[in-house]
Nucleic acid binder design. Sequence first.
DNA 1: GACCTTCATTGACAAACGTCGATATAGACA
DNA 2: TGTCTATATCGACGTTTGTCAATGAAGGTC
Lengths: 116, 116
Amino acid sequence: MAVGTPLTVLDLDECCTPLRREVLDQTDAATLAEGFKALGDPVRLQLLNLIATADAGEVCACDLVEPVGRSQPTVSHHLKVLREAGLVTAAKRGTWVWYSVAPAQLDALQRALARR
Amino acid sequence: MAVGTPLTVLDLDECCTPLRREVLDQTDAATLAEGFKALGDPVRLQLLNLIATADAGEVCACDLVEPVGRSQPTVSHHLKVLREAGLVTAAKRGTWVWYSVAPAQLDALQRALARR
DNA sequence: GACCTTCATTGACAAACGTCGATATAGACA
DNA sequence: TGTCTATATCGACGTTTGTCAATGAAGGTC
């Protein structure tokens, strides 16, 4: 699959008011939960962290397999989950795929947790 | 079980530096992931939201069943998950159990998502 | 063309999860 | 004591999830 292939990606831009401030409707709760669910796995959190802290702002997928100690297909699967959650984006260049974080989505999740 | 019964509760106080700032070790990633996993369900998010936005700062468990549209055992299960994640605390008074949010834990999760 | 490398997908499996009905526990009150 | 109510636990179930080996697809090099 080409990296640019359409993929249904979670969008938190319109969603949601901070959890502690206002009452959420069921739809917003479901949307938000999807975002947090993507963060709810240690391997994904490590991947996201590796990508987010990379000096260049992006990381080759090839450099993500060894640090998390999982098989290449497993890492690929988790990267897909992160992409579907809109937390990272991928860019194919030649043989390699480079991953970067999507700051807006992380910001949205952070806002959802803000103090009242 | 008494509400005060020891329960292994996740503690995020020492954990972790913001995801986008520093490299996380595997243990911190696992700890943090547990926190987010607890937020990764729409029913739990709704419960947390109902508790957090309550005027009195606490909500009777009896008032949490109807709004989320699940059975009483299911709600009880989710409340336990939230307690284990350290996101809410429970206080039994007479026949009723009152739930409040644990702000420090939510703050810790919010910090983990902070911009670099 | 043939071959190699990178990454995604498939298929299988065990473990974890969300859900509910039934039941247990504990407190209130007569 | 007995009964009623609120909440937790148990047991079972179907579904989802994380994982890997095997395979496929796409791009590079010769």
